[in-house]
Simulated assay, not measured.
Amino acid sequence: MTIEETLAKLGVTLPDAPAPEANYVPFVQVGDLVHVSGQISMDENGLITGRLGDDMETEAGAAAAKRSAIALLAQVKAACGGDLERLVRVVKLTGFVNSTADFTDQPKVINGASDFLVEVLGDKGRHARSAVSAASLPLGVAVEIEGIFQVR
């Protein structure tokens, strides 16, 4: 089954790759690695905002992280000229969680992205990862995730 077929089976449609909101590019390819800029949590209704440990629960944060992972895949698809089958593997994710100083479940939040990528990609979705707290994130979003992907 192709990646696109797996996404369809899961009821996920990749959006168009989000355009940058500032002076940067959405991805840079160096050799067979694509470095994707941070993708903020948003869905078809707009930004997913909130602060974990304050007005957002861990499960909602994980759902926001999944949306960031969907945007990451959209950027990889754009980097691959529309052909997700060029994706070899997810190398590394760095997840930033908008959270209070006493919130300690950042890894559970970023699991929303990690679990989704493994569900869609199988073993090539397994990756190295960091999950860190941030005092705030752009536009008040709950999650931002950047990634490194190997492509052919």
Results as ranks from 00 to 15, higher is better:
residue 131 A to W: 00
residue 150 Q to L: 02
residue 100 T to D: 05
residue 6 T to M: 09
residue 33 L to W: 03
residue 150 Q to Y: 02
residue 151 V to C: 04
residue 130 S to A: 12
residue 41 S to T: 07
residue 16 D to V: 10
residue 111 N to E: 14
residue 111 N to G: 11
residue 108 K to P: 01
residue 140 G to Y: 09
residue 30 V to G: 00
residue 61 G to W: 07
residue 78 A to M: 09
residue 84 L to R: 05
residue 122 G to S: 01
residue 33 L to S: 07
residue 57 E to D: 10
residue 140 G to H: 10
residue 74 A to T: 00
residue 54 D to F: 13
residue 43 D to C: 07
residue 53 G to I: 06
residue 21 E to Q: 14
residue 133 S to I: 04
residue 21 E to F: 06
residue 13 T to K: 15
residue 23 N to I: 03
residue 144 E to I: 09
residue 19 A to I: 01
residue 118 V to S: 06
residue 69 A to Q: 00
residue 78 A to K: 15
residue 142 A to M: 05
residue 118 V to N: 08
residue 43 D to Q: 09
residue 23 N to S: 11
residue 98 N to A: 00
residue 70 I to A: 11
residue 73 L to K: 08
residue 124 K to R: 15
residue 95 G to W: 11
residue 118 V to P: 02
residue 128 A to T: 12
residue 13 T to Y: 08
residue 98 N to F: 02
residue 105 D to R: 13
residue 118 V to E: 14
residue 1 M to N: 00
residue 54 D to I: 09
residue 75 Q to N: 14
residue 101 A to F: 10
residue 10 L to S: 07
residue 75 Q to D: 12
residue 63 A to Q: 12
residue 152 R to W: 06
residue 3 I to W: 00
residue 41 S to V: 04
residue 1 M to Q: 01
residue 45 N to K: 10
residue 8 A to E: 04
residue 106 Q to T: 11
residue 46 G to R: 07
residue 138 P to W: 01
residue 83 D to N: 15
residue 113 A to S: 12
residue 145 I to G: 08
residue 13 T to Q: 14
residue 80 C to P: 05
residue 140 G to S: 02
residue 110 I to S: 00
residue 51 R to S: 07
residue 2 T to M: 02
residue 147 G to E: 07
residue 14 L to R: 08
residue 120 V to A: 13
residue 102 D to S: 15
residue 86 R to N: 13
residue 59 E to P: 02
residue 34 V to I: 12
residue 145 I to L: 09
residue 36 V to N: 03
residue 145 I to A: 10
residue 68 S to R: 11
residue 21 E to Y: 01
residue 133 S to T: 00
residue 16 D to S: 12
residue 72 L to R: 04
residue 94 T to H: 07
residue 48 I to N: 03
residue 99 S to V: 02
residue 26 P to V: 08
residue 28 V to Q: 13
residue 73 L to Y: 10
residue 127 H to N: 09
residue 131 A to N: 13
residue 126 R to I: 14
residue 34 V to K: 06
residue 142 A to K: 02
residue 84 L to A: 07
residue 122 G to P: 03
residue 11 G to N: 08
residue 99 S to A: 15
residue 109 V to D: 05
